[in-house]
Nucleic acid binder design. Structure first.
Lengths: 356, 356
DNA sequence: ACACCTGCTGTAAACGTTTACGGTGTTTGG
DNA sequence: CCAAACACCGTAAACGTTTACAGCAGGTGT
């Protein structure tokens, strides 16, 4: 692990100045003979350019950060899967931050933008405080927010439409004849929690169904929390015939509890999840889930950031990704893998998985 | 996005030299009065230290890279989930690389170590060529390899024991009375593919079962490829009563095809996967799977790297993580979520999921 | 009163690049 | 044959830090 060669080493060996070495390495016009000598010296020495020194001078690091609430959540991972290749193709490295949904950590990430070790940031905050907004306005590098941010905040913004998403799900349940539709939500002080709760209420209203507090249970966005919440809901309202869950993990928890309680899914209780993660398609029974386009949102965010890195001062843009309902067995009882599909290999199939 | 303040700006405003500013910011002994002035100036200016300049001088970037074959694979994500917090706690940022299992990309990552934008690297290569080894010997920063690497390679190494893992699974199937145990493997020129294939053969031998080529099908480590492979295997060997799959994705593909073909799992055909990913516990029916300790391996790798970053020249270490069989419905037919567990919230439960 | 130490601070060099500028040596045109 | 134009190259400054070293003021011991 001896100290590697620098352009100075090369310059000496090739008998030219460091300026010439730099020019050759950057492909600037230079005499053939010089190019040859420099290249030869660089090859012999096994030279690799020092990215740190280069960044200091050029004020570009070719790194971009992605801050997610939790590396463990499949919805964020779906974003990551799209963001990574887009950035890689453009020559950027990806720095990962996991904020564990702690506001202080998110602020910290925003603050660390000032350290200039990245050229830009994609962030998906769970809660958006006044301090967040303040730091966003003062940010020293381009930021793209995945999630909702107030009108006028000077950042690119990619949103899901969970309002329509919840409506799709509730309408679906209603169409199946369900009338006692419960909701299992995450904390109401989170952006998604608040939006999904309000959307549920609204969807019921549109259908002319009464809003019943007893049918709503608040927990957290985890599987075990979902299970706990559903257990309580069942105790309080045994008549519930459908559950709208605020994400897939909660829904999986719901399935656990319903099975343990001897309730059949979907005959007795239909269940809908949200985010349409890998887990939904793989679960038992397979889970009907509202896709909020995690993958598309990730891709859009990466593209917005790249665009902004290239054309600096552009109007901030807002991209909204439409939701889609993935209907599976937990509401209809029908298994979604017919023989024809299972045996054939499609592009979409391939994207579902990976190597090991 | 105006140019931020530097220590020079602070020095001017505080009426001291840049050296003093640096000393104060780094907590080196300084007169109280000076400390006060510098801190005040830094606060007023909203100073944030430039990480790039700092790295250039100190030759430390406080970044570590993790190169995985594919961001889409849950087994690697399980590693990522462990690596991230360990590094974060030690003050390191994580740079992600996805090599798409292309050897050239892996070499590229190794090469780019010379750019010195990271202090170390954790890598999990699918194939290990002579060129890999050569670059590992010449690496300009500490490397930890997750996967097998020849004796004597000067890097820390974390291994799974897939040999024992496969044996656990085959023994389990044998104990359940299965005698026509097939194997669906990935490419034999990959490290895991080769190891798992050999282990399968060996396990059969130990049990006194004949090795039958017709019971083995090679595909790739994807769900759709697994489905295709199993479809062919079923056609050729309708009598197969168990399938040992080289990873969970293949096993999920197997479940798809078996269901479509009207074979009951596990009554007609028992299925075992490998890696014990989230998908295994969530699948339908839930999947018995050999855990190769992805999480533990990730954690061990991160810890080895940190240790190496602190005590530079240490003997290379080898950590082997033992396998474990997670028995679920795809072999025994018994559902693994009793009511008592589903309703309670444990630390382990919480780790399974995340926020959304 | 002098040498000496102590505590603090400033000057300057260094990390490895990129790049503006000016200085060569050669070519071109009159 | 000389001036101007040109192609190429080297010198040096800059990016924002850290840190070795020297200098300076004030206090201590003799």
């Amino acid at each position: 692990m001896a100290d590697g060669p620098t352009i100075t080493t090369i310059a000496e060996r090739a008998g030219v100045s460091i300026a010439s070495v730099s020019r050759v390495l950057n492909g600037l016009p230079t005499r053939q003979e010089t190019v040859r000598k420099v290249m030869a010296a660089a090859d012999e020495l096994g030279y690799v350019r020092n990215a740190v020194a280069r960044s200091l001078k050029s004020r570009r690091t070719h790194q971009v950060a992605f801050a997610m609430a939790d590396v463990g959540n499949p919805a964020y991972l779906a974003m990551l899967r799209q963001i990574q290749p887009v950035l890689k193709a453009a020559g950027y490295r990806l720095v990962l931050h996991s904020t564990d949904a702690v506001a202080a950590d998110e602020i910290d990430v925003l603050h660390s933008l000032g350290e200039r070790y990245v050229d830009g940031l994609i962030m998906s905050p769970l809660r958006v405080t006044e301090q967040h907004l303040q730091m966003l306005r003062a940010a020293r590098a381009p930021v793209v927010i995945i999630g909702s941010v107030p009108e006028g905040t000077p950042v690119d913004n990619v949103r899901a439409d969970s309002r329509t998403g919840v409506k799709l799900a509730v309408d679906h349940l209603h169409a199946l004849g369900r009338r006692r539709i419960g909701m299992v939500n995450g904390p109401l002080d989170t952006v998604p929690g608040a939006a999904r709760g309000a959307a549920y209420r609204e969807a019921l209203e549109t259908l002319g169904l009464p809003y019943d507090e007893n049918l709503v249970e608040i927990g957290d966005f985890y599987r075990a929390e979902g299970a706990r919440a559903v257990a309580e809901l069942l105790l309080r309202e045994p008549g519930v015939d459908a559950l709208m869950c605020a994400n897939d993990l909660i829904a999986l928890g719901a399935l656990d509890v319903l099975r343990a309680a001897g309730r059949r899914v979907p005959e007795d209780v239909a269940v809908v999840g949200m985010d349409d993660t890998d887990l939904a398609a793989a679960s038992w029974p397979s889970l009907t889930s509202v896709s909020l386009g995690s993958a598309e949102r990730g891709k859009a965010a990466a593209e917005l950031l790249l665009d902004r890195l290239q054309h600096g001062d552009r109007e901030p843009r807002l991209v909204t990704v439409p939701p889609r309902l993935a209907v599976r067995a937990s509401t209809t009882g029908e298994e979604p893998y017919p023989a024809s599909r299972a045996a054939g290999r499609t592009r979409a199939d391939k994207r579902e998985g990976g190597r090991s």
